[in-house]
């Protein structure tokens, strides 16, 4: 079964738009409707916030057994990245030898094709990361 078939368009995926809590200032990605720290106090105060796109590799793995929509891409690197704004996200690291990838490596977001849905031909885009200069 194709995963892509039922994906809505999620603009936050390629714009890296999260939310900032107007009460405590914490930044969340993916966007949250409510701040888990401030809860009630944050209602109506969650503002859109565009991440700078820079962060640090917190941990990483090289995937050798891919899911259907990544078949043929293996091996590829997936990292848990701490964004400079303090939130974490999971994404692929591209344009980089696996040997170069390490915990603490500075990375920046770039926007790439994630997958193509064979039936509809719709191309899904999203963020990936590369080594920051």
């Amino acid at each position: 079964m194709s995963i892509a078939r039922y994906w809505r368009e999620i603009p936050q995926r390629y714009n890296l738009i999260g939310t900032k809590c107007g009460s405590c200032g914490r930044v969340y990605f993916p966007p949250k409707a409510i701040c888990p720290v401030c809860r009630r106090k944050s209602i109506g105060k969650m503002e859109e916030y565009k991440l700078k796109g820079t962060g640090t590799v917190e941990t990483y793995t090289i995937i050798h057994t891919p899911p259907p929509h990544f078949e043929g891409e293996e091996p590829y690197a997936i990292a848990l990245i701490k964004m400079d704004e303090g939130c974490y996200l999971v994404g692929e690291i591209v344009d980089c030898d696996f040997e170069e990838i390490h915990i603490g490596m500075k990375v920046e977001a770039c926007f790439r094709r994630i997958e193509e849905d064979g039936t509809r031909g719709a191309i899904q885009y999203g963020y990936k990361f590369r080594k920051a200069e």
């Binding site: 995963i3 793995t61 891919p66 899911p67 997936i78 990292a79 999971v90 692929e92 963020y127």
Partner: peptide, 12 residues
């Protein structure tokens, strides 16, 4: 969606 598998998450 971004290519993280279930073993991949535990690998992280």
């Amino acid at each position: 969606f971004f290519g993280a598998t279930f073993p991949g998450l535990y690998a992280l």
